[in-house]
Nucleic acid binder design. Structure first.
Lengths: 189, 189, 189, 189
DNA sequence: CCCTAAACGAGACGGTACGTCCGGTCTTAAT
DNA sequence: ATTAAGACCGGACGTACCGTCTCGTTTAGGG
């Protein structure tokens, strides 16, 4: 391995190489096929270095995932709730169906089923997204576009539930039309 | 082990003991904690016997899961689509949130992410349920209770997507009111 | 690896291959250079199999050594103590300086320094040899060839001490003449 | 670590602390249990400092040992070879059986089995001692106390062989009477 | 009635990966 | 220039399971 030592400071390149190899491994083998030794080998990093910084496998998955999901989904103001929701869901669904993104989302969810930090990471990730959508819908209520007793929580669960359901069960693709259809189902136009 | 031999016929007790141990292990450790050797030990069965009948781990999970999900969800005719849908979803959600059922559903979905027979089993399981719900909704269209252009596929994804989303992400429980709320959101009353 | 399985019985060939590889490794690298993984690789045996039967490294060394030191040193009756002692020491020294034997003896002694079963094995090995020599000398006393107050214990320590000293320090070889010289020093002719 | 830096000169205290920790570790764990990292930790010294001054583990053992074996065994003139030899052996054996000394001698011998500088150090150490004993015996020949054809080399091997044999095999202690008994066996009184 | 065939428990085996430990090298920052 | 600190790659450690392979026992069912 030709990477230069950095002495007693953490080696940033080793960190990057590890996360890149993890990401690639998730893409290739899925989360159940993750092998720390393979990642170490492919990243040209020693196992000890991996265990030093990511004491649990879940931490590695979470970090690899979060490197790819920085991209914030912008909340726009299109003039109508329906437009705002559709824009938001469209951006969300587009991001999720990127070939790079889908396996990472699946891996994160799978890893989260064991509880622990992956569960927390997933919860915080999905929680943040739900708040954004809830905010958009709340704005609709404030503007009297939606009735005051709108079931915000449920509409959020629908918006994201349909997405995850399709990602995980695979009976139908997350295609271009989905955001429009979901919006039509949950927001009167 | 005190279980009696059955000679050259398959030993039904060994089969049951294996599936029970598998089920218990899923409940205890989740699908990622499944160990064939533990199952064999706990079931008082030899590894060879397990591998003879369930050549892949996924087959074991699928079998253990299907033993618990025999219970067919009845499709009733309450006189209105809304009533029928709510009755169906309520039964579905109730079954899914049974303490025995939830871990198995999660395990099946996780195992399915690797593809293979677990994916097929999950697909056929969820597919069957979607068809039932679609049938109920189609009857609503036929009776003119629902518009002809109702997006059947999407409404099914909503009905089940919300359920799975809550089972997997864990931000909110699948409670008694959920079926009513979901029904209200997707079917005009 | 093409070695045939033997089912649930211990595989004798695997045992032999392991000991042979251990012996070879001691010869090549000395006891401090022993690597269980190398032995496993060279013997075509899995690590688990080695650990199953030799839970400690010392046990492996002891077994490998004892496979080579079966050869009993015969106690002859030449008609005189001096003759008997010289014959015994000559046979002992000859065996010890065999190219196959020397590294194993050194390894056994080194391993024994840590205590444990190697120490016991060495003690029993050397103890047996000392008893033989003591028996020969005792016979000399019985026959009035040696004075009754002969320091048997010390003479044994001399007979073997000189051998080990040369084996371990390496300032002089264990050559053909040594047995005769040692005998002359400890037994009046 | 509270030890003061000494800037660009070698830090004598670091050297002492390292050797003391090495000595202590040999006493505690034997030579096979030596860990550079433990020594560094216990001595409050960095690994780099150890490697700078003792590039090989053997060098460390040799140094630690030689710090303890400075004590020269005086060669006295008691008026008879027997007396001189006994005095010399007694002093030698007494030094070797000191609780501080024994583990270090064992460690040195073990380390020497791998060859290299430990072997050289051991050889030079034992060689020096043998020359002293040989000198005493030669003086006995010169004074006609011993026959001219006395096997000097062998008698030295006996004097030290018995010592090492007992140190290493552990079947019998190096006690107060040993020097007298060995002397009686190799030098006519 | 015997004798073959299948199922089963037991458990050894060759592998692969685990997570830990240590060896020896390197760089930084402080003295 | 020397040191403490500590990250790093490499590689062996001893353990845990995997999936495969006999072995000897048990019973069912066909000749």
């Amino acid at each position: 391995m030709t990477r230069a030592h950095t002495g007693r400071r953490r080696n940033e390149e080793a960190r990057k190489a590890t996360l890149a190899a993890t990401f690639e491994a998730i893409r290739r083998d899925g989360v159940s096929g993750l092998r720390i030794e393979s990642i170490a080998r492919e990243a040209g990093v020693s196992k000890q270095t991996i265990y030093r910084w990511w004491p649990r496998r879940a931490a590695l998955v979470v970090d690899a995932a979060s490197e790819r999901s920085h991209a914030e989904v912008a909340v726009r103001d299109t003039g109508s709730v329906a437009g705002d929701v559709e824009a938001f869901l469209d951006a969300t669904y587009r991001a999720a169906r990127l070939p790079d993104m889908t396996p990472v989302l699946r891996a994160l969810l799978v890893e989260a089923q064991a509880g622990g930090e992956a569960a927390e990471a997933l919860d915080s990730f999905t929680g943040g997204r739900r708040e954004l959508l809830a905010g958009i819908l709340q704005r609709g209520i404030d503007r009297r576009e939606l009735p005051a007793d709108t079931d915000l929580e449920l509409l959020c669960d629908i918006g994201f539930g349909v997405l995850w359901y399709r990602l995980l069960v695979g009976h139908a693709r997350v295609d271009d039309t989905l955001a429009r259809r979901v919006t039509a189902a949950i927001v009167p136009r």
